[in-house]
């Protein structure tokens, strides 16, 4: 009996990610959810600009490549024109919280019925490790060689907390994939984000705290520990908004 195998919604193309980069784990979780919900034939993914720019090679469903940060705008158009399809975006923190911040905030405010998978690795991975809007105070990057100075560069943006102040979004949760139990929880969250769309509930965003061993300058193992030691304290895991649950409670 097969206990674990590569999900059908992933192609056979080997990932180009660096050794130990958790982008691959998150791809797999999305694909497993697509398999379990039986939606591969009607799912359309929107790939970002960033290390996951070639995500369109890895998912077996239809994929579109968006301009940097514009994935939620593309997803909005696709979903509104084809409401029977399931539409998700897969975006890094530079893509979603920097150049694409307007698209993120407004698609959430409009409660677009889409699923956003947001990979927060506190860095611009693809371009060689520049400071991102999510880089931690004091974090050394290519463009903050003495550590992020919050007086000059401002404070890192907590996307889930910020969006939770909007009336619009249906579901916001932050998870991570640095251990087996956390991977199981992340999958549950991603599944819920797709299920919400199937039920027509609206905008669901899952922020996944992910590693970038290469640009953090660490081994894959040390990077997973750095998530626990440095990332989680600034970016606490949990559900930041669940409108359906709130409505149930109010009854």
């Amino acid at each position: 009996m097969v206990v674990f195998q590569k999900p059908h919604a992933l192609t056979d193309a080997p990932f180009h990610y660096c050794p130990g980069c958790t982008h691959g784990i998150i791809h797999r979780l999305v694909a497993e959810v697509i398999d379990e919900l039986g939606i591969e034939g009607k799912t359309i993914g929107i790939a970002p600009v960033g290390c996951s720019v070639m995500a369109y090679n890895y998912f077996n469903c239809d994929m579109i490549e968006a301009a940097h940060g514009r994935a939620p705008a593309v997803a909005t158009g696709v979903k509104r024109a084809n409401p029977e399809n399931i539409v998700f975006t897969y975006q890094g923190d530079g893509d979603l919280a920097s150049i694409g911040m307007a698209e993120t905030v407004h698609s959430a405010a409009r409660n677009e019925n889409i699923t956003v998978i947001f990979i927060n690795n506190a860095i611009y991975g693809m371009t060689g490790g520049q400071m991102a809007p999510t880089s931690l105070p004091g974090q050394v990057t290519q463009t903050s060689p003495y550590g992020r100075d919050v007086k000059a560069c401002g404070y890192p943006i907590r996307v889930c907390e910020m969006l939770s102040e909007l009336e619009g979004p249906e579901y916001l949760e932050r998870v991570t994939v640095n251990s087996v139990p956390n991977i199981r929880k992340a999958k549950k969250a991603i599944r819920k984000a797709f299920q919400n769309q199937i039920e027509g509930k609206g905008f669901s965003l899952i922020e996944v705290i992910s590693s970038c061993p290469t640009n953090w300058g660490m081994t894959p193992q040390a990077a997973l520990k750095w998530i626990d030691d440095k990332m989680i304290p600034y970016y606490p895991l949990g559900v930041y908004k669940d409108r359906s649950a709130q409505k149930e409670e109010a009854k």
Partner: peptide, 19 residues
């Protein structure tokens, strides 16, 4: 013990577990 923890953690999805 075919727990598949290794496969769950593998970023490159190269492990298959059977029992």
């Amino acid at each position: 013990i075919a727990c598949a923890c290794c496969a769950l953690m593998c970023p490159d999805v190269i492990i298959t577990v059977e029992k």
